[in-house]
Write a protein that binds this DNA or RNA. Structure first.
Length: 399
DNA sequence: GGGAGACCTAGTAA
DNA sequence: ATTACTAGGTCTC
């Protein structure tokens, strides 16, 4: 079973009969989503639970070789693992999503390669360049992982099972808004919210039953009110988004340029800058820095990473709370262990903690469960022991 | 500086 | 059927 399932409620109603595999943008598609959070009809639910086989036309896609090994890019460990909430699983080992104005599908091919396909485009060359950029192709996963493996036995072991977990290079605005949505939230709802925002952008087409949109411009975002976002189920994050958009717009020289300039800043500068935006704390800032600002040693410290850190890196901090200061100590510990690409190492370690990956890891590497299981085993053992004791005592008494 | 609550919501465990 | 808690945190005291 694939791990995070596509969120169905995001799909617009459609007829149960097989839709065309991919639908180019037409005016009728421009009708915007209504509320994101609305009850799904039972009919639609069925579609979700029994996804129809991909339309035969999908097989007709002519994949162009990316010429990249699985060890450099394995899609299921790169797209549905919390870096982006904009891509959809549109087939076996196949993912589709927007890259700027382009709509791209990627598929793991036979023969250890990944294929790509740019939908509805007449500037394939531009799309390809943007794709390479988005995939961070300038960085060799094998090269940087070999360093991690050499210095960390546990990483080496995890890496055998989780090859090809690559860090993407997303658009900064897109990344920022997504991670503001992610605070104190779960993947399913984050995806719904991101989808709502995205639907304000230019429609790019439909693939595998999913609508895709270019991410809305800053101006377009500014036209969305806090009330509308609350209505759509954003909760208190509605205020953050409106506030952040306003803050960006007020930057002299432009918000987009300001964000882009953080790519040339050092990590601390980027984090400090991002943290001035409402709804952006240490975690969100680090995510944006790592996933969109070329800050390869940014460490998003969430509860999972915190667990890893107190288990392997700085056990002396176990039991304390995750304050900003502790947060940066954790980040420092990762950087001193893994070096300038520490964020890429953290990504693999984080993925290894995801429940969805447990099935592909040997149980000896399940940390989170391991602990509770051991505890459970001890408890069971103790109970059996006491039973044993009682029994033997009883025997003694009886005799 | 660190600690405690509140903050929206949906889903699930008691 | 209610209640409590949690989920890739942040803000305010």
């Amino acid at each position: 079973m694939q791990s995070p399932r596509p969120i169905l409620s995001m799909k617009r109603p459609k007829t149960p009969s097989a839709p065309p595999p991919s639908t180019p943008p037409t005016p009728q598609h421009r009708q915007s989503f209504t509320k994101l959070i609305n009850p799904i009809s039972s009919k639609r639910r069925n579609i979700l639970q029994n996804p129809q086989p991909l339309p035969s036309a999908a097989a007709a896609i002519e994949w162009k070789p990316l010429k990249i090994n699985k060890s450099e890019l394995y899609l299921p460990l790169t797209f549905p693992t919390g870096q982006t909430f904009r891509w959809r699983n549109t087939g076996p080992l196949q993912y589709t999503g927007p890259i700027g104005p382009h709509l791209v599908s990627l598929k793991q091919l036979e023969g250890d390669d990944v294929g790509y396909f740019c939908h509805f485009t007449d500037s394939d060359e531009t799309a390809r360049i943007n794709l390479f950029d988005f995939l961070n192709m300038g960085i060799s996963l094998n090269e940087i992982w070999s360093v991690f493996k050499a210095s960390d036995e546990r990483f080496a072991e995890l890496a055998m099972y989780l090859e090809g977990a690559r860090v993407l290079r997303q658009d900064p605005l897109e990344c920022l808004i997504q991670f503001i949505c992610s605070s104190n939230n779960n993947i399913q709802r984050i995806t719904k919210m991101v989808d709502f925002i995205s639907s304000k952008g230019k429609f790019l087409g439909n693939v595998g039953g999913f609508d895709f949109f270019e991410f809305p411009t800053l101006d377009k975002l500014a036209s969305v009110s806090e009330a509308e976002l609350r209505e759509a189920g954003f909760g208190y994050r509605a205020k953050y988004i409106v506030g952040t958009v306003a803050a960006l717009q007020s930057k002299p020289g432009g918000g987009m340029e300001w964000l882009a300039s953080l790519r040339k800043s050092d990590l601390q500068g980027a984090i400090t800058g991002l943290s001035t935006l409402p709804g952006v704390g240490p975690k969100v800032a680090a995510c944006v820095a790592l996933f969109s600002l070329d800050q390869h040693h940014a460490i998003p410290v969430d509860t999972h990473v915190w667990q890893i850190a107190t288990r392997y890196l700085i056990p002396e901090l176990a039991g304390t709370t995750l304050t900003p200061r502790v947060c940066s100590r954790v980040a420092d510990a990762f950087v001193s262990k893994y070096g300038k690409y520490a964020g890429w190492a953290q990504t693999l370690l984080f993925i290894s903690e995801l429940p969805s990956q447990k099935s592909i890891l040997p149980s000896s590497l399940w940390n989170t469960v391991e602990k509770s299981e051991i505890k459970l085993q001890i408890e069971v053992h103790e109970i059996q022991e006491t039973k044993e004791n009682r029994r033997s005592k009883k025997k003694k008494n009886d005799s």
